[in-house]
Structure formats: structure tokens, C-alpha cells
């Protein structure tokens, strides 16, 4: 549900850019979501649709580049996808695994005219 407040933050930033750079419409909003950003891309798209209604970004496509979660084995250094979290290292069987990723959410770029 925090996607709604994030969508409001995104629109605030877009509107501030519009004031400074004088564009009239936003076609694409490109975002990067860190693996530990806690973002549900679908919920964020839905929130953007509702928040941006009647604004310069009403028609904007929201592209979200979501970084995958990666798990690293502390014993042998192997890396593996970590979405739900493997029980043990696929390579050496150790359960001493570490999840890594960024918690950031950034607006990478806008396409406007």
C-alpha cells in the first residue's frame, strides 16, 4: 500500500521537473527498484494510474527495472537467485547464505515533449 505514497512522490518530482523544464506531456517514466526496495511493480503501476489522472503524466507508461534478489554463499561464494530463498547453497550445500541488494527507488529518466 505504500506504493500510493511513492506514486505521489514520483508525481511531485515530475511536476517539479515540468516547472523547471517546460514540457507538456510525459510519455515514459523509467524507474529503477533495488532488490530490497519492497516495491510491488504491479501495485506501483496501478497507483501511478490513479495518482496521475488529469496530470501531464496521465498517459505515461511506467517502466520499472526491478533488480533481482541475489543470494551469495558465504562458504563457497556461489551466487543464486534469491526470490523465496533457497534452503541451501546449490553448489556446496551450506546453509550459510547471504541476501544482498539495494533498497533504493529512483526515477532514472523521463521521456517528454
Amino acid at each position: 500500500m505504500h506504493e500510493l505514497s511513492l506514486a505521489e512522490n514520483i508525481l511531485e518530482i515530475v511536476e517539479a521537473e515540468r516547472a523547471g523544464r517546460r514540457f507538456s506531456r510525459v510519455h515514459v517514466i523509467r524507474l529503477r527498484a533495488g532488490a530490497l526496495s519492497g516495491i510491488d511493480p504491479e501495485a506501483l503501476r496501478l497507483a501511478m494510474e490513479s495518482v496521475c489522472e488529469g496530470t501531464c503524466a496521465a498517459e505515461a507508461a511506467v517502466e520499472i527495472d526491478a533488480e533481482p534478489r541475489i543470494v551469495t554463499c558465504r562458504r563457497c561464494g556461489a551466487t543464486m537467485p534469491g526470490d523465496v530463498g533457497p534452503a541451501a547453497c546449490a553448489s556446496c550445500g551450506s546453509i550459510d547464505l547471504e541476501l544482498a541488494g539495494s533498497s533504493g527507488l529512483d526515477i532514472v529518466s523521463l521521456e517528454v515533449d
Binding site: 511513492l6 511531485e12 521521456e111 515533449d113
Partner: peptide, 15 residues
């Protein structure tokens, strides 16, 4: 259509 690179933290005001 122009592409504007931003690199802005969405949670900037909070942070």
C-alpha cells in the same frame, strides 16, 4: 520527444 535523465531518489524528501 526528448529523454531527460534524472537519477532522482523517489524517497528524497523523506530521506
Amino acid at each position: 520527444m526528448a529523454k531527460l535523465p534524472l537519477g532522482r531518489n523517489v524517497r528524497g524528501r523523506n530521506d
